[in-house]
Design a protein around this nucleic acid. Structure first.
Lengths: 233, 233
DNA sequence: CGTCAGCTTGATTACTTTCAATTGTTGTGG
DNA sequence: CCACAACAATTGAAAGTAATCAAGCTGACG
């Protein structure tokens, strides 16, 4: 059941919170990890499902989203290699509160509920990491709240682009955003419609802030973009 | 420096996360707590300030808010007796991320940073509680996000009323909401303007869902109100 | 009884969404 | 290689929602 694409936990260097565990603990972590390849577009778990464990991203990109009114999707967070997913539901012993979907072909390990919770139980360092993580996510969520409720569509789109860049960075050319999303998905981050997203991107394109190349977005001057996030005409 | 209005931590029964600590720990917690009366409207700490410790509400009501664009306030959470405030900033070693203001005369204890963190360090139970708390807050924040971005002003107002009722309940008559806010503050929860809030309250009043009595809001049929939160015409 | 702050109401304006129609892209099978 | 289907992107127009602006109004309080 071993997967050639993924090293054992004892040799994994994805900088996850598990990397600092003792060798023994990592050994335990690594046994019987099951399937762990997810094709682009494939769902890792659904909002409302019972928890089975936490997922740890080895490679690829993942979106976490919730369904709102009339099934409208709101993307709440992204995950990249080294991030763990689904831990919040597990910690408060609830169903998963969001749906996780692979945005690209991804290798993702699953650590069972029991294993994770027992590790947490006798490992101060791990629980400290978890606390840090939760704090960070909470901060992000609250900031996101302010941003989405008080800013205009244009500002929110800029905000979303900056979020994506901060999470995934640029491609090898150092200016093409490393994640290419559909207009609809971008709209689902900014909390707007795809049409508004298209119009706003067109404006930003015309203003020279970004350059649209098919689905890809090229940013020549990241600082300029970030400045737009703060103050807007 | 003892305050007659507040019992020692060893005898406090506000159901905070500290109540389950050992007697010894509570003893430590209780030494030198300083000023702890906050008048209505008084600020407990400001967004951006250095952390000095966590606050534990003994009695009263507190709002936590952040400043958005143009200094517009967004209320992010309420705290009631037994709740602790300001812990998130402390855990991630950042300035306070929100401003805490007493909504009524309140008695609030302060536990210093050092004391709190050292307690956390050698107390698994406490760190588990903290994890639970963070998880709960994170869930709330993410739900709030969806609600504020996808719902209409009317739905958001209803949502806000339900939040207040769930947090503080009703007065002795069992139908008057226990917290009376200004229209502006209510608007700041729902993320809208005071005018829209007024108009919406007037509509709900006319529809018989609520009854406006000065600043007080009377709810005869809480279930009806809650139903409006879910599906709306 | 005047003042001030908060509340209320109506009118106007700005911004977004929604709807509808068109164009562009991609993958598939003949 | 082309035609076609399916889906995504784009554009324009119309409709809707809520914010803003501009007055009055009200009630508490010195």
């Amino acid at each position: 059941m071993t997967n050639h694409k993924i090293p054992a936990c004892t040799h994994c260097d994805n900088k996850s919170i598990f990397c600092n565990l003792s060798e023994d603990n990592k050994e335990v972590l690594g046994t019987g990890k099951g399937h762990n390849f997810f094709k682009k577009g494939q769902t890792i778990f659904y909002e409302g499902n019972h928890t089975i464990g936490v997922f740890c991203v080895y490679s690829g990109k993942v979106k976490l989203s919730k369904l709102g009114k009339d099934g409208k999707e709101q993307i709440v967070r992204f995950s990249k290699p080294g991030d763990i997913i689904g831990y919040r539901a597990l910690l408060s012993n609830e169903p998963y509160q969001a749906t996780a979907i692979a945005l690209e072909d991804s290798y993702i390990c699953m650590i069972s509920k029991e294993k994770f919770l027992s590790l947490l139980d006798d490992n101060t360092k791990l629980s400290t990491s978890i606390i840090q993580l939760l704090s960070k996510d909470l901060k992000g969520a609250e900031q996101n709240l302010i941003d989405l409720t008080q800013k205009s569509v244009k500002e929110r789109i800029v905000e979303s682009l900056v979020l994506i860049i901060n999470t995934f960075g640029f491609k090898a050319d150092n200016k093409t955003i490393a994640l290419s999303l559909s207009r609809q998905e971008l709209a689902n981050i900014a909390g707007t419609s795809s049409e508004s997203t298209i119009r706003t991107l067109a404006t930003l394109n015309k203003e020279g802030v970004i350059k649209l190349v098919g689905r890809n977005i090229v940013v020549h001057d990241f600082d300029h973009l970030k400045k737009l996030m703060l103050i807007f005409d």
